[in-house]
Design a protein around this nucleic acid. Structure first.
Length: 326
DNA sequence: CTCCGGAAGG
DNA sequence: CCTTCCGGAG
């Protein structure tokens, strides 16, 4: 979870995750949907797929536990150089240096090292520098100390040089402009426009649903959603379908906002839509609505809440369902 | 708004 | 080597 995600963001997920999947075995056997749901909102969903792949590998392994060496850990899915060194050094005292964003910042400032840290070769140089600094007697303390220094004092925007314990050897502090480091090339972003459709259908309760809703205020209004197919980004999560002028007619705008995803700026508009032909509303065998993408379903508010949506689509869902309650 | 942050796949 | 993947905080 901490790969590319800050501690404060992870905190609410972590305990819940361990309650849901307390063992490698439990995670290995969990349905993918449940795993994605527990990760919903953390982003970089490849991580969670790798984590479950990892659980399967570990659960099937002779020991049933993670390897203890960095080299062994590095073989496993989702474990790269940082995670391998972090586990090996902190849990097992192996003298292997970690290189995360914090360490990169501390070292480039200490050395006034102005190369572009996005380049793999530059990272390798920094990793070697960290390894040379590492005290082999206390790798766990050293690694955690340098990461903590970056997180607490040598911060991206407001480094506290005046109280920094390693101010004297720091070349950036001597230069008087620690914010110059680290240097990273800024990738140019491309703008993307996306229109998403919210289609609504007043439900006819099946006998089963009537039985289930006895004594409950169960909404039978349904919304057209689709499971993102394999091969597409965020596959296995759910979304509102893309607006398709061939089969849909725009009735009103529900919301519009912009969000960033890596180098893209996505301008997302969600519109209330109705089918331009009645066939879209008909449901064929297996709940597959006619004229829609495979994986499309008419979902109740309860189902939408229970399924995993990436944040942008979760935002639309929340807005929509709030509005419905009024 | 801008900036931050690991691993994998090509 | 290069690009791709998300969401939250400042």
């Amino acid at each position: 979870m901490l790969q590319q995600t800050q501690v404060t963001t992870v905190l609410p997920y972590y305990d819940r995750w361990l309650r849901l999947f307390p063992t490698w075995q439990a995670l290995a056997e969990a349905p993918e949907g449940a795993v994605l749901k527990a990760w919903e909102g953390l982003g970089y969903y490849r991580r969670v797929r790798n984590l479950q792949r990892l659980a399967k590998v570990v659960a099937e392994s002779p020991t049933g536990r993670l390897p203890e060496t960095a080299a062994g850990l590095l073989e496993l899915p989702g474990i790269g150089p940082y995670t391998a060194s972090a586990i090996a050094s902190i849990a097992h005292n192996e003298p292997t240096a970690v290189l995360d964003g914090n360490v990169i910042r501390v070292l480039t400032r200490q050395l006034a090292y102005g190369e572009d840290v996005a380049k793999p070769a530059v990272q390798e140089t920094l990793r070697a520098a960290a390894q040379a600094l590492l005290d082999p007697e206390t790798p766990a303390d050293f690694n955690q100390a340098i990461m903590e220094l970056g997180a607490v004092l040598c911060t991206p925007r407001g480094p506290q040089c005046l109280v920094c314990p390693v101010r004297l050897p720091c070349k950036a502090a001597a230069e008087g402009d620690p914010l110059r480091y680290p240097v990273k090339e800024r990738a140019d972003t491309t703008e993307v426009h996306e229109v998403v459709s919210v289609m609504k259908r007043e439900g006819h309760a099946s006998s089963q649903e009537r039985a289930l809703s006895q004594g409950h205020a169960m909404s039978l209004t349904r919304y057209l959603c689709e499971e993102i197919p394999p091969g597409e980004r965020n596959h296995g999560l759910w979304r509102f379908p893309r607006f398709d002028a061939e089969t849909m007619r725009e009735e009103a705008e529900l919301c519009a906002f912009t969000y960033g995803i890596t180098r893209y700026r996505v301008r997302l508009r969600a519109v209330l839509a109705s089918p331009s032909s009645l066939s879209v509303c008909e449901e064929t065998e297996g709940g597959q609505p006619a004229g829609t993408a495979p994986g499309a379903r008419w979902l109740t508010a309860q189902e939408i809440e229970a399924l995993p949506f990436a944040s942008a689509h979760r935002k639309i869902a929340t807005l929509l369902l709030e509005r419905e309650l009024k």
